[in-house]
Structures are given as structure tokens and as C-alpha cells.
Design a binder for these strands. Structure first.
Lengths: 205, 205
DNA sequence: TTCGTCATGTAATGGGTTACATGATTAC
DNA sequence: GTAATCATGTAACCCATTACATGACGAA
């Protein structure tokens, strides 16, 4: 999951590990807690070994500018490679059960701006189905086994059911927007007035 | 986490693994997916080795009743031991960072009926603080870095923020109820008209 | 000079999953 | 007799965490 997120972020601009973690935390803050360093650095190694990222020069500007910065030999800036971009495209387009799970869905969604509309729809619909299933399970329990459960367990189920219903409505809206070629903020991206069929171009970085 | 849940469920009645999984799925359906067998059975082994659960006779009724049932030698029914009950009490009362996390909080909450009020309040308040922190993080990002993020990432953050705000309100209500000695359904348990100070007795099982 | 934060890393561990393998019982 | 579900289990793996260790840099 982090593999996907790291490749996605490095596509915006080269970064070193520490910085990457901050960006990751901001981008995925709604989904899960920050990645730990004990996970981040080994993952970077793995991605580098696979050839998907490479070390970049710390200062792309003329080396003479600020010698003090060059002496910070600890920092390793990574940038994505062509193979890395391919890998990202592969990962982001591949939809299956785990892209409908809480975390998997969230990470995919966070990179929807780099995903084509067909994939976005597939993921949103898969997620909706998954949440609907959970919702039905909760309704079942609340309907049939309610008297067997204590007040706290019931309250937990009710709260969970509410969250499911809300998410389904949210997903419905997003799906409707996608179908009519709108982005979540209601705008129609691109220069042409028609709906965008493919990727939204990445923001200037 | 499952250790706690298994001990809690076996306190209601003896069960075999398969049954336990079903109950676990129903009880924790609002929190997470079902436990896998590859996780459940080894855990039962571990709990048994620790002396917290033991194998119980399949048919506590007179053995002559239905011989066919006795021949089902595959099924292993477990029941909790005195040490197991102690262990459960220890686990359920121990509050720390992980009892405020999504899953940890959910499991603790699911067994609030077996928790004393002081612990319930500690957990609810710890959880509230945690969710408030996440909420602030999201507000920060939405306030300060909004223009750097694409429409989808923003939408994700907004949805996450909304969920946080909702949960905080929910927790506030629950905390207020606890303080005034009410259970989540608004009733005041116990025979005496005053608020309950300690455990709510387990439901008849 | 000391504290906070930036910055990178390793080793041990943990808590789970998937895939596989087996077989009994029940319903059609 | 055969399909579904009940029921138990193992082995391999995976993804991540915690705890630890190190050290530079800037500000007070």
C-alpha cells in the first residue's frame, strides 16, 4: 500500500525519506496513521533495488551555490524512474478486493487524480458494494439478534451502520459525478467544455 | 486484540472455534472483518497453553441423550477458566494508546458491559482526544495546504473530517451518559434508582 | 551547551492473512 | 451421490510496528 503511495508522491517531485513521510502523513491523514521509519526506509530500499526509484542529486542547482547544503551527506533524495512510473500505473489500475478495503480504497482514492475515469468508477463501485454488504450485515444483526446483545454492543452497531449509510451516500454522489464527467468539487476539468474521458493532468509541481 | 474478544465471548458461554468466529463476526462487525481460521485456531491453542481456556465436554447434558452428537469428535468446545477471567479483567481495564485506536477502541467498547464505569470513561475520553487530534490535523491540511492538493485528495480529507466531527459528537454524548449514570439506550440499569457505580451485570446467557 | 527537530537506519517481533489440506454432517 | 456448510488445522508469508542506535543542525 505504501509502495503505491510513495511512487505516487515521488511522481510529483523528488524527495528524501523524512520529507516523504510528512507528505504521506498529510495526504493519507484521513485514512491511517503515519508510516513508521522502520517501515519507510526499508521500503525505499526495496523500491530502489527494484529499479523503480533512484537517488537524485541533493541540489539540482549549480553545485557551488551553497556548499553547506552539500555537506549534509545524510540526506538521500529519491526520484521516480520510468519503470517506477509504469509500476505505479500498474498498481493504481489494478482493482481487486483489497482496493475496496478501508485502507486500500483510501490510498487508491488519494491518487484518483492520476487515475483514468474507468478505473475510478470501478473502484468507487467496488467500494460501494463492499460497504453495502457490511451495512446489510449490521442491519441483520440489529434486526434479528438485537435482544441478545447488550446496550453498548448495540450502540456500536448503530454507529457503524450510520457510518456505512453515510459512506454509501457519499459514494453515490461521487459515482454520479464521475458519470457526468465532473471532479468532486463540481468543476469540469480540461480546456474543452466536454467531460474529461481520461486522466486529469497532475498539478504543477 | 482477538485474545480479549475471545475471552470476553467465552465468558458468556462455552463455544467451539467455528461458533466463536460467527459470534466474533457479529459482535465486531462494525469494527473489522471476520477473524481468519488461520488466526483463530492458533490463538485458541495459545490461550489454552496459557491456562486461560480449557476444553469442555461437548454435551454437558447426560451423555446418553444423543449418542450421535458425541461421535462428532472433530468439535472442540472451549470454556474460560478462573485465570482466564482474571486475564480478561486485566486486559479490559488496561488503557493505553492502543485502546484509543480504531480497532482497539472498538473491541474495548464492544465489551463495555463488562467494564467498570471509570474505565469506560477513561477509554471514551482517550478516544475522544485521539479523534480530536486527527480532526485538527485534517483541518490544518484543509486550511493551509488546500491549494496544493487535487480535488480528490481534498474530498477525501473533507469526508474524513466529517467522520471525525461526527465521532467526537457521538463520544461526547456517550461521555455525558456515563457521567449521569445512564447506559447508551438512556436507561438506568440496576434495581436502585441511583446511578450505577460499577459493572453492569452480564446478560443472562 | 543543551534542546528540539531533522534525518537515517537496523533487529526483533508481532499480529495477522492466504492458501492449502482434510474430513464429517446435512440437505437435496 | 453430490453439493453446501460445518469444522479444524498447518505452513508460508506479509506488512508493518516498536525499540533501539546514531548523528547533524539550528536556536535558545
Amino acid at each position: 500500500m505504501f509502495e503505491l503511495a510513495i511512487l505516487g508522491l515521488l511522481q510529483e517531485s523528488p524527495m528524501h525519506g523524512y520529507e516523504l513521510r510528512k507528505e504521506l502523513t498529510a495526504k493519507l491523514g484521513a485514512i491511517r496513521a503515519a508510516i513508521s521509519y522502520g517501515s519507510l526506509y526499508p521500503t525505499l530500499r526495496r523500491l530502489q533495488a527494484a529499479g523503480w526509484i533512484t537517488e537524485a542529486a541533493e541540489t539540482p542547482a549549480t553545485a557551488e551555490e551553497i556548499p553547506a547544503l552539500t555537506s549534509r551527506r545524510g540526506r538521500v533524495v529519491y526520484k521516480i524512474t520510468a519503470e517506477g512510473k509504469e509500476r505505479f500505473a500498474e498498481l493504481i489500475a489494478q482493482t481487486g478486493p483489497e482496493s475496496y478495503e478501508d485502507t486500500g480504497f483510501g490510498v487508491h482514492f488519494a491518487f484518483f487524480a492520476r487515475t483514468d475515469r474507468a478505473t475510478r468508477l470501478r473502484i468507487l463501485e467496488g467500494r460501494r458494494r463492499k460497504v453495502e454488504e457490511r451495512r446489510e450485515g449490521l442491519r441483520d444483526v440489529l434486526g434479528r439478534a438485537a435482544e441478545r446483545l447488550d446496550a453498548y454492543t448495540l450502540e456500536l452497531q448503530r454507529h457503524g451502520l450510520d457510518a456505512c449509510e453515510r459512506e454509501v451516500r457519499w459514494l453515490e454522489e461521487l459515482i454520479a459525478n464521475e458519470r457526468s464527467g465532473r471532479t468532486p468539487d463540481g468543476s469540469t476539468p480540461g480546456t474543452a467544455p466536454g467531460p474529461s474521458e481520461e486522466n486529469i493532468p497532475p498539478p504543477p509541481g
